[in-house]
Write a protein that binds this DNA or RNA. Structure first.
Lengths: 344, 344
DNA sequence: CTGAAAGCGCTTACAG
DNA sequence: CTGAAAGCGCTTACAG
């Protein structure tokens, strides 16, 4: 049916080995120009494409990279998936984006399933926090790089890119204080509904600390589970309720830029005017934050740079597995737009 | 290193064949309960995971599906990637989302590369139109399903889901006419910069026809290449220019919902008020269109339903390759929101 | 109920 | 410069 090495070798009246060498460009002084041209033209003519599975089985290299992320329909992760795929492709690798759906069990399942199945390495975009020890065992099965937002302390046993929200969050608190926005309503995300020993998102902890340091008050906080945070209605309802219950609030900090259109709508419904009597700031810059009116102030992580680091670190690790794990720290940056600027 | 069937068969004192049968659940009355339990417990204990490549080579089935799409960072395609991945997964398949970057050559490359390499079938989300004949040859290599937006005429040689924009576009023209928005500025996307025999997007053609049928004027049109259409600045600049040049325009139709925040901003900059002296409508509903103020009227395609069709048709075709190709027509629907409603 | 054997399509020493 | 051969780790008739 489809053509194989053997087919080509027969027609070229040579051995499979020679065909393999030629087609993989591993003929230096090893194959005569004549047979080489012959093989190449026959391969082209027969439309030969090597069977991946056979190559993988023979070499032990898949040239596949698993990319673990929360949800492809979220443009934040979609953008990362795109950046990573392009960079991997340029290096001869294929990326396999796999969704966890913000489910820790599913993440674990993927993490244990992927390495032995069909990838040479794994990049994980941490969207679930707490219980970091779960990552330890992965590196034993395959090179593993994690992007996370904890403070940049080295973790044992695997490489990681730490996105430093400390910087951006302090810039934000400082900026809000300067502009006189001092009563902050927090719309934050957690992993489940709040209870005793609830895993709080690391950047939320940093934010609270920075606010205390700058004398910002927080009369009210709302917590969202990852599940709820997908519902724009939910953000709208809760924002509206918060603004109605606490007239003193003059600033909203939203965990995720995706939600800002609903938050803007709620502010309008509450009779507030963003930039006049209400500031709004958020995380995770995206395509529309500059274009809402007013534009949305954002603590931004440099996604292009991070994607490059993730890929480059992983490929280095694949080529040199016994090197010790590395940590790269990438600073975030506050982008100030109209939503936190006091207009006259 | 990692455990193989042979390792297990040795420890269980049986043959690889028997181990394979048990671990694949193909023991009916063929393996004794005793050896079966023995094998299962040893496999668990040794943490056995089958090598995919070996299975693929032996069976010829990859259980991978290539999903060809424009750009994962675009939430429209990201959402499709997510829906398709979940449904495939539920059926024991893995999806490989692959970006074309809106490049026809790249698409062609993927289309010829994937089948023989590592997939059992292909789902393509057409984002490049014209030159449809290019798809013919794919089906010969692997089952192939296309989602496209042409009129729902059967195409030869492969199955497809035709998203019927005719319906939604007529509803839109009708609605605009009713509301008295009759001077329409068109912000449309094309594949390259306009010239003689330029491939116009099928739904643009339908829209123009529907507008003529309803007596809507179009004093100005702007065309965007797929490349330009990624730039929000571009949409903003061009919208502003259009509104300034043609004061008579009282309605904008935007090719892609992604751009609407920039279009709204431009309208504001031009001193226009959406819902009062300017209507805005668009295609491809997304998470924020309901939440801009006013909400954005949209011609919507039912993505969940389409994703289900795509996956189900493909799996059927894989299981029954000699069945003749099918066509499913899915209607679009107009969702009316404030952006096209005349407010008092 | 179970095992020996061939085969999937490559790659890679190795021998010449 | 080239070929014969082993091997990657499974599955699947087939024979018993």
């Amino acid at each position: 049916m489809t053509t194989t090495l053997k087919d080509i070798s027969k027609r070229a009246e040579t051995s499979e080995a020679t065909v393999s060498l030629v087609l993989n460009g591993r003929h230096f002084n090893r194959v005569s120009l004549e047979t080489r041209h012959k093989i190449e033209s026959i391969a082209r003519e027969m439309g030969y494409v090597p069977r991946r599975a056979a190559q993988i089985l023979a070499t032990g290299k898949t040239h596949n990279i698993g990319v673990i992320l929360n949800d492809l329909s979220n443009p934040f992760f979609g953008h990362y998936a795109s950046l990573i795929q392009q960079r991997l492709w340029a290096n001869g690798y294929t990326s396999l984006p796999m969704e966890t759906g913000a489910c820790k069990d599913r993440e674990r399942q993927l993490l244990s399933w992927l390495p032995q199945k069909s990838v040479d390495g794994i990049i994980a975009l941490e969207s679930l926090w707490g219980d970091n020890d779960g990552y330890h065992y992965v590196e034993k099965a395959a090179p593993f790089i994690l992007r996370h937002q904890d403070t940049g302390q080295p973790r044992e046993g695997y490489s990681h890119v730490s996105v430093d929200y400390q910087i951006g969050v302090v810039q934000l608190a400082n900026h809000l204080k300067e502009q006189g926005w001092d009563q902050v309503g927090l719309l934050i995300q957690t992993q489940q509904l709040p209870h005793d020993n609830l895993p709080v998102h690391p950047r939320t902890l940093m934010l609270e600390q920075a606010m205390r340091d700058h004398g910002l008050q927080s009369p009210e906080q709302w917590w969202y589970s990852a599940e709820e945070s997908k519902s724009m209605e939910h953000w709208y309802d809760q924002t509206l309720a918060m603004l109605k219950a606490h007239r003193s609030i003059n600033c909203l900090i939203v965990h995720n830029a995706i939600a800002t259109p609903a938050v803007f709508a709620a502010a309008q419904a509450a009779g507030r005017q963003v930039g006049h009597d209400l500031a709004i700031a958020t995380f995770d810059n995206n395509a529309f934050t500059p274009w809402l009116r007013p534009g949305v102030t954002v603590v931004h992580e440099p996604m292009d740079q991070i994607a490059e680091h993730l890929v480059d670190m992983l490929l280095k690790r694949i080529n040199n597995p016994q090197a010790s794990p590395k940590l790269i720290n990438v600073p975030t940056q506050l982008i100030v737009r109209g939503s936190t600027l006091r207009s006259a």
